[in-house]
Nucleic acid binder design. Structure first.
Lengths: 224, 224
DNA sequence: CGTGGTTTTGATAATAGTCAACACGAGTGG
DNA sequence: CCACTCGTGTTGACTATTATCAAAACCACG
């Protein structure tokens, strides 16, 4: 999952064609805390996330870390370059994965429709990353955090009473490294949005969206 | 072109397989200032850059702009998502392009080897963008500018006397919007690196790398 | 009920942005 | 050939945002 341009209209977010396309058989269950692969590993499989949440990270020698993406249901992870993984990938929330052989992406396996879908997923990945560039390069802290909440709300928000609720299974530090901020800034920004009455923080990992349109405005840099 | 992790060893940068693979026929010449496509256009062609420089940009409603990438020889531009372009693309330096039908990427054209190469280019694109995330999210202004110069030096540096020289055909504002900085910060940072004796600015668009290893150190956040 | 990791808040500092002035250079027309 | 102008680049002064460092609060877990 990347932070794309948030939208008011949850209906127009095209859920990946991969959601619910395959039978239960041959799915992999992975536990929170386990790693799927490391940077430099040879790529044998791509994974379509069916449930759970993954985390893709990349490290700099001096310890700085970028969270490249979170893998939510419908996302595909594991795209290789020159046959190797270029991120680490671990599991934040117990997940079910649908593995596909690398050959399926490359078109040298039997199932042509799978090849087509994996290719389309790769192209969507490029587009999503381009949107995320805009966010990393141009947006302020509050716009980043608001955008992040908007996108998560669209993707995995649950209706609870009159409001939409979002789980944040990752640590604040993960959000920070995803958005190019520090944990402290993420905290302060969440606090600010809470004090403005736009969200409520039910517990550390559960956010309730009180004013969706105000949050959207924040994410776009309107308001001020 | 994205800003990947710079490296001392220019030899290990894999030049795209596309450099020099096709006959002169069917190449397109495009003039500086012209546009190849706009965001939202339906995708018919992908282009392999043979010579010249392209610029891919994405706009926010309020006018903020992200330069997504510069298209240098060996790069492939025009990857679609849902059949449409998600950036604008214009020409900075007169360019020769090798167009390929979208069908070639999708594998529904005759030439299987072309399909394979375009797919590999898309996968390298994803990997390069991941590296660029690290840069946008984690690096300081001086690290960004130094990284940018390092990567350009590796890609298109020319030996002149004892030194390597790099052309910067784009405006300072383009560099700024590519790195997530302001023009002023790009200027000041270049000035600082120049005053440190690491580069010389021959003219606005021509940089001479006086101390490549010092520049590399800067780009990695060593030094300090 | 401690303990360790995480989150939050506060005080302060540093980095990068903003706004404004000036410099430079290419192209134009007197 | 020399002002003049316009777009771009550079520098300076100041401000704002975000990072850093430190302390306290919170929570999960043994």
């Amino acid at each position: 999952m990347y932070v794309t341009i948030p939208t008011d209209d949850a209906a127009n977010v095209p859920v990946s064609k991969f959601v619910g396309t395959k039978p239960k058989s041959s799915q992999a269950h992975v536990k929170a805390g386990s790693y799927l692969y490391f940077e430099g590993d040879e790529v044998e499989w791509l994974y379509v996330v069916k449930s759970g949440v993954l985390r893709l990270t990349r490290l700099l020698e001096d310890g700085r870390r970028q969270v490249i993406a979170f893998g939510y249901p419908g996302d595909v992870v594991g795209f290789p370059a020159d046959g190797r993984h270029h991120t680490d990938c671990d599991v934040l929330v117990d997940a079910e994965l649908q593995p596909y052989r690398l050959a399926c992406l490359e078109g040298t396996c039997s199932h042509q429709e799978t090849h087509r879908q994996l290719l389309q997923a790769a192209l969507r990945e490029i587009s999503g990353m381009q949107d995320h560039f805009l966010m990393l390069g141009q947006k302020s802290a509050i716009e980043k955090v608001a955008s992040f909440l908007c996108v998560l709300t669209d993707r995995v928000g649950e209706e609870v009473g009159n409001f939409t609720q979002v789980e944040l299974p990752m640590k604040r530090a993960d959000i920070a490294d995803f958005l190019g901020l520090t944990t402290e800034t993420v905290c302060r920004t969440l606090t600010q949005i809470r004090k403005d009455g736009i969200i409520a923080i039910d517990n550390i990992h559960t956010i309730i969206i009180l004013k969706p349109s105000a949050l959207l405005d924040l994410s776009l840099g309107d308001d001020d």
